[in-house]
Design a protein around this nucleic acid. Structure first.
Lengths: 248, 248
DNA sequence: AACGACGGTTCACATAATGAACCACATTTA
DNA sequence: TAAATGTGGTTCATTATGTGAACCGTCGTT
């Protein structure tokens, strides 16, 4: 792995649940030597992507990240504009809704609104979803240009779990169904007991830039519920597209 | 410079005014070879800190930055909580107000609310302010523990402009005055024609974590105005402290 | 006082980064 | 038209950079 990759992997160890980590722990989790981890951390700290708590000597993410994220967000306000719509969709359906953004050939989960119910699906921000085998990915492909879809399906399709669909022809079929309906549907396709509805969010050029997905426990969903979730998801996705592209 | 430093310096080239940059341009601005810049960009893109627009082939900041910034922000919601207060202070005083966060031995400007007036002071988000020679820095030192102040003043004090104060004894005097008043004041200390009032924002342990500053054209400020700006700045800084530490 | 954890440092060694020269392509200039 | 200049991207011998085992000192526990 490149040195830069290692440095970024250190940043990725910080989570909502564990926002401050000590040196030894950090090195262990990243699979790096303590000296190496420290050198990388010092380089990151110099650029303010990492900070060190002066008394506990633990490390945390730095203010420079907030700064860079603000620049990106001003230019590309996807999460900021989409979050309230995602929230409304979660309230309307009573289920967990997650928002993903297309980045580097996959979907990155950038926002989650959890269901208020006790029995709910939990999704973590930061999770990377492959385009194949997840309802979000299928919805994304269904909204993509045909040549993009076939180029993707011709490439290598790594199975991410035992449920992952890797046969190009079956994927193509799922994509076609999603394209005709406007949303994708999958019962237990990605994880045991989870039912998902996915819809694509379009950018100004008509190409998809991300997705949202309604994730429910299978026990709460029948065909009628799925259909109403699908329609609601389409409406929400379109609303986000409209807000992003300026009423286009 | 370390490889990691070079990679981060590439990220830092993106600004609000120029959020997308091509490879050659990026390499030139960073002072790197094109091949080197590209390798670093690919490493960053793999971790989603950089994205490449597929048609124009230009690069921009990636979604991974938003993700990391969210984690930091949830743990340390400085900007989120302070921004509305800064906004109110800007409206109340009619002047530009900027918010800085202490990070790695200096103050990083993380938020700015510009004055609505035509003749106003402009401040850029991302600017790094040294602790000496800026009103924000003096206010920060004035709120720091005495041993921290003397340790800092004993270290090397680089002059950042011809106006920078580098004599420890004069700085100490300015710090003492700021400590007794609760805010710092500087007319043209940092930049020609700019009058500034700075106030420190305290964290839960009583130590300063950042500052806010009211920046006005000197022509609009006399002693009475400065005093009222100072009182308003103190109130705003305290309000942020209270909100941050949970009504403490 | 002996132990084990911590954060941090050193330096001989090896790997990973470097950059001049090179594509192919698109605009602009002569 | 054809040369010139720009772009993004690639190659590979050279070398500078990153690496990690072993080493501090310190802290809190046993």
């Amino acid at each position: 792995m490149s040195t830069v990759g290692k440095a970024v992997s250190l940043l990725e160890l910080f989570t909502l649940a564990e926002p401050e980590i000590g040196l030894s722990d950090l090195a262990r989790k990243a699979g790096l030597d303590k000296a190496t981890a420290r050198r990388l951390l010092m380089a990151l700290a110099e650029r303010r992507l990492i900070e060190q708590e002066s008394q506990s000597r633990r490390y945390r993410l730095g203010a420079g990240l907030s700064r860079l994220a603000r620049i990106r967000d001003a230019h590309f306000p996807f999460v900021r504009l989409a979050a309230p719509v995602v929230r409304d969709l979660s309230i309307e359906t009573g289920e967990t809704v997650h928002l993903s953004e297309f980045s580097a050939g996959a979907l990155l989960t950038v926002h989650v609104e959890l269901s208020a119910k006790a029995n709910r699906v939990n999704v973590d921000v930061g999770q990377v979803l492959p385009l194949h085998g997840t309802p979000s990915g299928i919805a994304f492909l269904a909204a993509s240009r045909p040549e993009v879809v076939s180029a993707y399906l011709d490439g290598p399709l790594q199975p991410f779990s035992q449920h992952t669909m890797t046969q190009p022809d079956r994927l193509m079929e799922a994509v076609r169904l999603a394209a005709s309906r406007g949303y994708s549907r999958s019962a237990q396709g990605y994880e045991e007991g989870v039912h998902s509805i996915g819809a694509a969010i379009l950018g100004s050029d008509g190409n998809p830039i991300g997705t949202l997905a309604v994730a429910s426990p299978v026990s709460r969903v029948d065909d009628a519920v799925a259909a109403s979730q699908g329609e609601a998801a389409i409406k929400a996705a379109r609303l986000i597209s409209v807000r992003l592209t300026g009423e286009a």
